[in-house]
Simulated assay, not measured.
Amino acid sequence: MGKIAFVFPGQGAQAVGMGKDAYDGNAASRDVFDRADSALGFSISKLSFEGPEEELRQTANTQPALLATSIALLEAYKSQGVKPDFVAGHSLGEYSALVAAGVLGFEDAIRLVRARGQFMEQAVPSGQGAMAAVLGAERDALAALCADVTANVGTVELANVNCPGQIVVSGSTAGVAEIGNRGKEAGAKRVIPLEVSGPFHSSLMKPAADRLASELAKVVFNDAAVPVVANVNARPVTSGEELRKLLALQVVSPVQWEDTIKWLISEGVDTFVEIGSGTVLSGLIKKTDKSVQAIPVNTAAAAAGAVTQ
C-alpha cells in the first residue's frame, strides 16, 4: 500500500462560489467558515461564496478565503477516515497544511494569512514589481539568466518551481520584462505575465517577511502530528519552532514545489489528495509524474465520495 499526502493550493486557485456547497451541506464545514468570519471581524464566507471577484482577488482577501475553503473541505473529508502520511501546501497553502498537521490553530492561521496578504500587498509600491510564468525553460539556465538580468537590469528571481517546464519568476518590473525579452536564452517557449499585486517570493518581499516574522512570534506553533514538507527546502519538518522560522523565510524564497512532489514520491507517496479550490496542484503533480494518483477534493460531493485507494 502506497503512502498518502494531503496537499493544499495557494493563490491563483480562488473562484467565486468556492466552499459554498460544503458550507450548505456539512455542519463541520459551516463551523469553519463561521469561525473564520468571527476571527477576522468581517464575512470572508460571503466574499468567497458571492464575490465580487475583484474584491476576492485582492491578496489580503484571497489568502484567508482560500485557507477557510481548504479547511472547510478538509473537515468534510475527515468523514472518509483517511489519514495522511505527509502534508504540504503551495505558498499560502502551507498554512492550510500546518492547520491540518495540528501546528497552527485555525483562528491563528486565518489571522496570520490576512496579515500576510496585507504585508505582501504593501511591501512594494504598485507597478514596481511583477511576476511571469516561464514555460519550457530549464531550471539552472533560467536561474543563470535571472542572475545576469539582476546584475544588469533589475532584480528578478525564481519564485515558484512548479513542475518540469513551468517556473514562475518574480522581481522588479524591468527585470521581469527582460526575462520576457530574453527567455529563449534559457530555452523558454513562452513567458506569460501574471496578474498579481506584487513580486511574491522574491527578495523584494523582505519588508513583508520582517513584518510577518513579528506576527508569527505572537502565535503558538505546536510540533507537527504528521511531517510538513516545507516550501523553502522541500524537506519534511515536524518542529513547530522550525516551521515558524520557515514561514517568514517562505515569503522571500522560491516555492520548491517540483522538488516537494519528487521527494514525496521518493518516500513512497503514490496518492495525492488536493484539498481546496480548483485542481491546479493535481495538474502540476501529474506533469511531474504521470504514474501517481492526484485526487481533487474541491466540492462537498468530492469530500464525501473521494476514492482514495
Results as ranks from 00 to 15, higher is better:
V280M: 11
V273D: 02
V280R: 12
L249C: 04
G283F: 06
K286F: 03
L281E: 09
G278Q: 08
E258Q: 15
T260P: 04
T279V: 14
L281W: 08
S253V: 05
L249F: 06
Q256A: 06
T271C: 14
L264M: 15
G283C: 08
I275P: 07
L284T: 07
W263E: 10
I275M: 01
S266G: 15
I265E: 14
V280P: 13
V255N: 00
V269P: 13
T271V: 15
S266Y: 04
I261N: 03
P254V: 01
Q250C: 05
K287P: 07
I265Y: 01
E258S: 02
T271G: 11
K262T: 11
T271H: 09
L284R: 11
I275N: 03
G268P: 12
G276F: 09
K262M: 05
K286Y: 10
L264Q: 09
L284C: 08
T288K: 01
F272Q: 07
S266A: 15
S253T: 06
V269E: 08
L281V: 11
T279S: 15
S277W: 09
W257E: 05
L264C: 10
G268L: 13
Q250N: 08
K287Y: 02
I285P: 10
D270Q: 14
E258R: 14
L284M: 15
L264G: 01
D259R: 14
